[in-house]
Computed example of a mutant assay.
Amino acid sequence: MIAPVPTRPFSLAFEPDLVNVSLASLLPVKALRPTVKISQKYTQIAASVREIGLVESPVVARDRRMPGFFLLLDGHLRVEVLKDLERTEVECLVSTDDEALTYNRRINRLSVVQERAMIVRAMERGVSADKIAAALCVRPESVRRRVRMLDGICDEAVSLLRDKQCPIAVFETMQKMRPIRQIETAELMVGANNYTVNYANAILAMTPQSGLVDGGTRKTVKGVTPETLARMDRELAKLQEAVTSIEETYGRDNLELTVVRGYLSKLLGNGRVVRYLVQNRPEFLDEFQAIADIKAPLTIEAAA
């Protein structure tokens, strides 16, 4: 008979129900900058709250020294917007831990592709572009631009850049390319960990006419001759081939390095081995020590 697995006790990170809290009883754990109310982020939050209400509840913790008061752990800008709108209460998520960390650091920011998907879904449900623009504090044309940005972009390229922080202009540049070149461009950007508009324009400038959509023209770069562009294109292709080759073996090489590093660290902890190396193979000792001193192998993103 199999013995039951003992269960470990656990505690909830938050109270199960939202709590209505008076704004006057909130104690901020950090001070806002005097210029925060003229920032774009504050303006966007204020517009969103006015148009659709509070989407994400502030996070608070009960003040153990002052009953009836709460430490405001996250949501300082939202609370400040509510004060400006002359609200007196807010629904809060109550943390059982009063550690004043920033919860937003644990949230992955939406990429422009993911943001577009949400906008398209909202418009399919009948929300107008004007209302979405008001909620995001942008112009209606900016919303329509987001909706159009994937027109003509192949699914493979979109998949590669789905979770990357690419500006809209990057996709507008890729719209001038044929699908195969779009995929190559996305792979180059991922390999180089570079998602800037300038990098996309540089790739467009090096794209041969056969890689452009009908009627498309190569982007001209002032002071750069066609011969220079051709050489840059060849060098970029070689670089991409090298990066792809490294990515294919990186995981295995990283594992082998970790095992070797651990073995050498243990080996160098043996005094007899170290004395032998000093007397007979001092050059080996230097190399072994250098490998053992490696703190941690880099990730592909960090190496890039």
Results as ranks from 00 to 15, higher is better:
42 Y>G: 00
62 R>W: 03
251 G>N: 13
93 L>Y: 04
166 C>I: 02
248 E>V: 10
202 A>C: 11
161 L>Q: 00
9 P>V: 13
298 L>P: 09
18 L>Y: 10
276 Y>L: 10
115 E>G: 13
23 L>Q: 00
292 A>M: 07
200 A>V: 03
264 L>A: 06
270 N>S: 10
180 I>M: 10
234 R>L: 13
245 S>W: 15
171 F>T: 07
81 V>I: 06
11 S>M: 15
127 V>D: 07
295 K>C: 09
163 D>E: 15
30 K>E: 15
289 Q>I: 08
238 K>G: 06
213 V>T: 11
149 M>A: 08
169 A>R: 12
5 V>Y: 14
230 A>Y: 09
249 T>H: 15
120 V>D: 08
72 L>C: 00
155 D>G: 00
80 E>K: 14
76 H>D: 04
58 P>K: 02
30 K>M: 06
245 S>M: 07
225 T>C: 07
290 A>T: 11
136 L>K: 15
95 S>M: 01
92 C>E: 03
140 P>V: 03
155 D>P: 05
31 A>R: 13
275 R>H: 14
252 R>M: 11
34 P>H: 05
273 V>Y: 02
15 E>M: 10
158 V>Y: 01
147 V>M: 09
21 V>G: 06
188 L>A: 15
218 R>V: 05
48 S>H: 05
154 C>H: 02
276 Y>G: 09
251 G>W: 12
247 E>M: 07
176 K>G: 08
146 R>P: 01
35 T>W: 08
117 A>F: 08
265 S>N: 12
219 K>I: 14
301 E>C: 07
210 S>W: 00
52 I>Y: 08
58 P>E: 06
164 K>I: 07
261 R>W: 09
97 D>Y: 07
123 M>D: 03
92 C>A: 09
273 V>T: 10
258 T>P: 01
21 V>F: 03
71 L>S: 00
204 L>P: 03
132 I>P: 03
13 A>P: 03
123 M>H: 10
277 L>T: 05
97 D>A: 11
35 T>R: 14
22 S>C: 07
26 L>S: 04
240 Q>P: 06
45 I>G: 00
52 I>N: 10
15 E>D: 12
255 L>H: 12
88 T>V: 09
258 T>W: 11
288 F>C: 11
44 Q>P: 05
229 L>S: 04
147 V>W: 11
33 R>A: 14
19 V>G: 05
61 A>C: 08
10 F>I: 06
215 G>L: 10
87 R>W: 05
27 L>H: 03
9 P>R: 15
224 V>G: 02
270 N>L: 08
202 A>V: 01
228 T>S: 14
67 P>I: 11
4 P>K: 13
55 V>A: 02
198 N>E: 15
116 R>W: 02
276 Y>T: 05
256 E>K: 12
6 P>Q: 12
59 V>A: 01
250 Y>G: 09
285 L>M: 04
105 R>V: 02
29 V>T: 15
115 E>F: 10
248 E>K: 13
304 A>C: 07
264 L>R: 02
222 K>T: 12
271 G>A: 11
128 S>W: 10
227 E>C: 01
91 E>G: 06
